[in-house]
């Protein structure tokens, strides 16, 4: 972390001097992220600045819609989604507007959480709880038609109480106009085949990433560590086998013939600590065909989660709906 000597003037203007920057916590692929203190409450926040191109018609429609969607998600107050506390837009030039998103600040992400876990790693119960919360947050996002697209241990936050909170979801589209201009290094390790093959994709992308993370919680190191798109696909097929010809997407340029004919190996060779139900669920998440991949809602219904221990942090979506029903009478 590098201390920030002079807080950016525009940030101060935009947020009405309410936030005092403490440190820069990441250049990030999409813009600068600051840790800052909310002067009123004394709480820490994460300020994410996104620069969006503005033409003569003002803020792009995509930015307006995506940020509005994030604001709308706030109304549901989902326990496994990071809070968006404030948003503002400031002009930088005629061509550029800066959108500042103020999120709650959580000190620890899943990456550090896994690194800090003592020697034998996380207990199977702990992994199950984390997975349940992760999927619960994801099913909430998916039911609101938000996909994450860049799920990885770095943007899964874990509070000191062990509560999982998804961060950086839905930002991909806000950032996209900026991204095209910046050559960014984005990790490929959690990318599903359809993204690596540049085929069309939807919410199942997040399930693939979740599967990779599921395995990583046991392994404490990533499952597939490719160095390029092709290398990443190769690493995936080494474990899961080359998919049959009929499952290969038709709208892609990469041919299936580029890869050796590999057969699937038992997943327990790579994730030995996982139990039988867990392995079954993992394979459902790491299904090559996105249409056959399990959904977040269905994954939560998997026998892996059906056992005696009650959910600790997880508040299921259904409970949320029930409480909404209570509010029907005005």
């Amino acid at each position: 972390m590098t201390p920030v000597s002079s807080p950016s003037l525009s940030m101060a203007q935009c947020t009405g001097l309410q936030y005092e920057p403490v440190a820069e916590i990441g250049g990030g692929a999409y813009g600068t992220v600051y840790k800052a203190r909310d002067i009123e409450s004394g709480k820490f926040v994460a300020l994410k600045n996104v620069r969006v191109q503005t033409d003569q018609n003002g803020l792009p429609v995509s930015t307006v819609r995506e940020v509005a969607l994030l604001k709308r998600l706030e109304q549901f107050d989902h326990p496994n989604v990071v809070r968006l506390m404030d948003v503002c837009a400031t002009k930088r030039s005629d061509q550029e507007t800066k959108v500042t998103l103020v999120f709650e600040h959580v000190d620890q992400d899943l990456k550090t959480y896994l690194e800090r876990a003592p020697a034998p790693g996380l207990s199977p119960e702990r992994v199950k709880d984390l997975m349940k919360q992760l999927l619960s947050g994801l099913s909430f996002l998916h039911s609101n038609r938000v996909m994450h697209r860049d799920l990885k241990p770095e943007n899964i936050l874990v509070t000191s109480q062990g509560q999982v909170k998804l961060a950086d979801f839905g930002l991909a589209r806000i950032y996209s106009c900026h991204m095209a201009l910046t050559p960014v290094v984005v990790t490929l390790w959690y990318r599903p085949p359809e993204v690596l093959l540049q085929s069309s994709y939807a919410t199942p992308v997040d399930i693939w990433s979740t599967g990779c993370i599921f395995a990583e919680m046991f392994r404490r190191k990533p499952l597939f560590c490719g160095e390029s798109e092709m290398d990443q696909l190769g690493k995936i097929f080494e474990v899961l086998g080359l998919p049959p010809e009929e499952e290969w997407p038709t709208d892609v340029t990469v041919s299936r013939k580029n890869f050796p004919l590999l057969h699937a190996r038992p997943i327990t060779d790579f994730v030995p600590e996982i139990n039988e139900e867990g392995a079954q669920l993992l394979l459902q998440m790491l299904t090559f065909d996105p249409l056959k991949r399990v959904s977040a809602v269905k994954a939560l219904e998997h026998p892996y989660f059906q056992d005696e221990e009650p959910a600790t942090q997880t508040e299921s979506l259904n409970q949320g709906v029930k409480s909404a029903a209570g509010g029907i009478c005005v």
């Binding site: 935009c14 003002g58 604001k71 948003v87 837009a89 507007t97």
Partner: peptide, 16 residues
Amino acid sequence: LRMERRLLCALKFDLS
């Protein structure tokens, strides 16, 4: 366009 930014900030982009 200035009013657009002012308004979005004032509403905190809440368009629901």
